[in-house]
């Protein structure tokens, strides 16, 4: 199933990028299977838990809205700092403890989206936490990371009813 869907998707991309040129398949016939092979090998390597996650299609628009809103907020926040004289930087590393997300694709998505939130960049993934670099530690930046975790849980239909504390952090030197 994975190979079939990947072939379909990548052939679609190929035709889109080459404007439907049939002769371009002379090159595509080499590179499309090669991409599928690399993608399969990388998935084997990263998906150690061997668990498959499914996206809730109905929640995709809400997640896209969350993503666009956070991107605008993050980009504006950085631009304002860059153009201001004192920049108001107090860079620090914090350990953000994961409340609900399991490993695999939800965690990968979380790591990528955290880097687009205002003032935070994901650095290292640990079993139960994520090392995050922040420009300044504020309650709103932590709340944003927690909201991001919740948004991804919602997208993947993950259970968030388990008891969780408020967003907690540990500062790292």
């Amino acid at each position: 199933m994975f190979y079939f869907l990947s072939s379909l998707l990548l052939t679609g991309f190929w035709f889109l990028l080459t404007d439907g040129e049939l002769t371009s398949l002379l090159v595509g016939v080499v590179f499309i299977p090669m991409s599928i092979f690399v993608s399969a090998k990388l998935s084997e390597k990263t998906d150690s838990a061997n668990r498959t996650f499914y996206i809730n299609i109905a929640k995709v628009p809400k997640f896209i809205w969350f993503f666009i809103y956070q991107s605008i907020k993050g980009g504006t926040d950085t631009a304002v700092r860059v153009f201001s004289v004192d920049m108001k930087l107090q860079p620090e590393f914090i350990h953000y403890s994961i409340k609900h997300l399991p490993g695999g694709s939800p965690m990968n998505l979380f790591m990528n989206v955290v880097s687009l939130l205002p003032g935070s960049v994901s650095v290292i993934r640990e079993p139960t936490s994520v090392l995050v670099h922040v420009l300044t530690v504020t309650s709103s930046s932590l709340e944003d990371i927690y909201q991001c975790e919740l948004a991804i849980c919602e997208l993947y239909r993950l259970d968030i009813s388990s008891p969780s504390d408020n967003p907690s952090i540990k500062r790292v030197s």
């Binding site: 991107s71 993050g74 980009g75 926040d77 950085t78 860059v82 687009l116 003032g119 960049v121």
Partner: peptide, 9 residues
């Protein structure tokens, strides 16, 4: 931070 957020926007 500058490269990811501002450039992406």
């Amino acid at each position: 931070h500058a490269l990811t957020k501002s450039d992406n926007l």
